[in-house]
């Protein structure tokens, strides 16, 4: 009985959220863009097939300019760049999602625990967080990516481990705010343990914030993935947008004037990052109209 009530309340919250989100035009555009790109990425096996990655069966000659057969030209192995771009969306989105999820998960855990327990424990945890905050994130990510062997998981880990402190700070502040509400006291009085309070009362209340953080984090993660790939720290055996930019550069596409090799992956990265940012900002302003971002 109580659970169904809770469910009803949650459903109501979601519906209210969506009604407000709909009023943000930019947010809707972002969402539409995301849906389109996600669809493309999911349908990639049907649209282009895993064979686009094959170098031994490459259909074209090296670095062909755009034509009817290859709308975006070919890379140095003679593979279709359009196919690679579509295929690359899978890795770029996957890395972005997983890295942001990892980062937000760490941040939320640290934030809730620090906010809930308080005292010297919180001080120590927040000191560590501060330490990560003053570390230049990109520098730290570069170091991590250098330390481990080149793989997609390395990149995800490097991004996730270096970008969580902001989330931790925000979640901690929110946790403290939530726990000062009377019903938490009531829950404690009724014998709710630490774990119960954190997972049943605090977590649902910080979830919206976490959602906004994740959405914004994905666009940062996608940009960082491209950056690491550009610096030669990506996984050379998978096709991602950042990796394509790096391939283009290594092939000397910039100075030989093959702009069609360089331009599309960059535009794709920018569009996806923009779409996630727009969504994130819309979510944020729904949750906290005072922020004024969406007005």
């Amino acid at each position: 009985m109580t659970t169904s009530l809770a469910w009803q309340r949650r459903r109501g919250t979601v519906a209210r959220f969506w009604r407000q989100y709909r009023t943000h035009r930019a947010g809707l555009h972002g969402l539409a863009g995301l849906a389109l790109i996600a669809l493309l990425a999911l349908a990639a096996p049907l649209l282009v097939g895993a064979d686009v990655q094959s170098v031994t069966n490459a259909p074209g000659r090296a670095l062909e300019s755009p034509s009817a057969t290859f709308p975006l030209g070919t890379d140095q192995f003679g593979r279709s760049l359009l196919g690679l771009l579509v295929w690359g969306a899978r890795i770029s989105l996957l890395v972005g999602l997983l890295a942001a999820a990892l980062s937000v998960a760490i941040g939320t855990l640290v934030g809730i625990v620090a906010g809930h327990y308080g005292g010297w424990f919180s001080t120590v945890v927040m000191r560590v967080t501060d330490w990560f905050l003053v570390m230049p994130a990109l520098v730290l990510a570069i170091v991590l990516a250098t330390v481990m062997s080149r793989s997609m998981w390395t990149v995800i880990l490097a991004i996730g481990v270096t970008s969580w402190p902001t989330t931790a700070r925000l979640v901690r502040a929110q946790t403290i705010a939530v726990e000062s509400r009377p019903y938490i006291e009531r829950a404690t009085a009724l014998g709710g343990g630490h774990g119960h309070i954190m997972s049943w009362h605090v977590l649902p209340n910080v979830m919206p914030l976490v959602l906004a953080q994740t959405t914004l984090g994905i666009s940062t993660a996608i940009l960082t993935e491209a950056t690491l790939a550009f610096l030669g720290l990506g996984d050379p055996t998978v096709v991602s947008w950042g990796g394509m930019l790096q391939d283009a550069r290594e092939a000397g596409a910039v100075s030989s004037g093959h702009w069609w090799y360089l331009a599309p992956p960059g535009i794709a990265i920018a569009l996806v990052a923009l779409a996630f940012t727009l969504c994130g900002r819309a979510i944020e302003s729904v949750l906290n109209p005072k922020l004024g971002v969406g007005r």
Binding site: A62, L63, Q76, E250, A251, G252, A253, S255, S256, G257, H258
Partner: peptide
């Protein structure tokens, strides 16, 4: 290409083709 330098080593095949 602009004449800022007289000589460049270690070209990639694409650069060589363009030059």
């Amino acid at each position: 290409q602009k004449g800022e330098v007289s000589f460049v080593p270690n070209l990639t095949p694409a650069q060589a083709a363009a030059l």
